[in-house]
Amino acid sequence: MADTVASPLVEMCDISIAFGGVKAVDRASLDLFPGEVVGLLGHNGAGKSTLIKILSGAYKPDDGEIRVNGQTASIRNPADAKKYGIETIYQTLALADNVDAAANVFLGRELLTRWGTLDDGAMEMQTRKVMARLNPHFHRFKMPVRALSGGQRQSVAIARAIHFDARILIMDEPTAALGPAETKQVADLVRQLKTEGIGIFLISHDIHDVFDLADRVFVMKNGRVVGSVRVANVTKDEVLGMIILGKCPPSATPGPGAVR
C-alpha cells in the first residue's frame, strides 16, 4: 500500500490529559497518512473528542508528543494548529450565531483592506465561492447564521475548515444533526477531499457513519486506545466488539486499552 511507504501526516504519541484527577485520555497514540480517512470510534465519554481537541489546540496535553510530517509540532492554541494546516469541524460547529456566514468563515483570519480595515466585500466574495462548491442553493449571505438551517450551518462550518488549504481535517460527529441528503453530501465531500491528498479524522460514536468512508479505524474506550484496524480486514461486529468489550480481533493492532 502506498500509505505505508509515505511518512505519516500526523502522529500523536503517548498523549495523556487529566481533568481534576480523571484521566480523560491515557497514553493514546494514533497516526494519519495523506489522502487517508481515519475513523475514531468509541462510546460517548471514551475520550475521542478530548484527544482530537488536543490536536486542534483547544486543550494542552499533560504528556506526549505531536508530530506533523515527522517534525515535532508545538501546538499550544487553536491558532498554532491552523498554522500546521490542521482544521477542525467541531460537533457543536463553533459558530458565532450573531454574525453572518462570511464573518464566521474568516473568524480569526479576516481579510483586510490596505488601510487595515475589514474587507467585507472580499470576504463575502470568497465565501460565496466556497459555499457554491459545498451548498449551491445557499444564498443567505447577509443573515446571521442563527437564522440558517442545520445543514446550512454545517456548510458554513465546513467552508471555514476547507477554505484555508487544510492538510489535516478533523470532523467531530459531522453528520449528527443532518438529514439523509445532507449526510450524503458530507460523504461525497470527504471522498473528494481524500483525492486531494488531505488526511481526515472522522470522529463518531456510530460505526455505520464511519465504515463506508474510513480506510482505518481507531477505537477508544475509557480514555485508552483499544486498537486500530484496516476497515477492509474486519467486520462491523468485530469493531463493535472493540468498542463495547475492548477486545481486539486478530487483524487489529492492539493498543494500551485492549483486553487481553
Partner: peptide, 12 residues
C-alpha cells in the same frame, strides 16, 4: 458575545 467558545477555538 455570540459564542465565546467559538471565538476561542478560532484562535482569537
Amino acid at each position: 458575545g455570540g459564542n465565546p467558545e467559538a471565538a476561542e477555538l478560532s484562535g482569537i
